[in-house]
Amino acid sequence: MPIEQICTIAEAVKLNAYAYSFTLEVGDMVTRHGLMAGQFLHIACGEGLLLRRPISVCMVQQEEPHDTARIVFEVRGEGTQWLAERQVGDKVNVLGPLGNGFAVAPNDRLLLVGGGIGVPPLLGQAAFTAKNATAVLGFRSADRAMLEEDYQDYCEAVYLCSDDGSLGRHGFVDAQLKDILEQDKNFTAVLACGPKPMLKNVAKVAARYGVPCQVSLEERMACGVGACLGCAVQMADGTMKHVCKDGPVFDAKEVDWNV
């Protein structure tokens, strides 16, 4: 069940020119309310903005006296700019835990595919399946890369790609994914997070190799709790589901990729 929590920022790190990593003290949200990586927090970003901003949880830790949750975000507009200006010791008002994370088991062999700001939400899944996962991380360019070392720590293998060739393989993550699956289809699931066109391509490749695929989707939200029906996504069967309540993680087969 979600709660409202005033969270103190315990750690604030700038990962690159655009991205920030915050560790929030979330009270007993992990211990008592079951907050998990892959779910999201709905964060009030200043007095002047009406709506909260949804940000995925990338890692959680049960700790005394406060559980902690790590979030990583990029500055996109006013809300995330406000958040980026917060300092250690500042407080933010958060709703959570919200949404459903990835369905994974500790001994799963996962193939994680992240693009840009879709990279962080998969880190918790890598940690959960300690040294069993393979990660494919894509960035626009080397200056936007982040968390490569964290992934190295938790994964069996890490592949880096960049759109401009300034880091790792020159090209998109789905090409790397295809090469990996061509060699070895023996993965429990592909988990993907990133821009929708990337997710569409990843879903296509996973389907071709017969590996189940879960994707974390984004949509503009108001309430974040399932009350306003604002964050709709179209499903392949013609129905609408809601990112905040039914997602953000969906089975790739359920999603209508052609809209």
């Binding site: 503009r220 939200m221 108001a222 709709a232």
Partner: peptide
Amino acid sequence: EGNPPPRI
């Protein structure tokens, strides 16, 4: 089912 997204 309502309108296509974005709705907000």
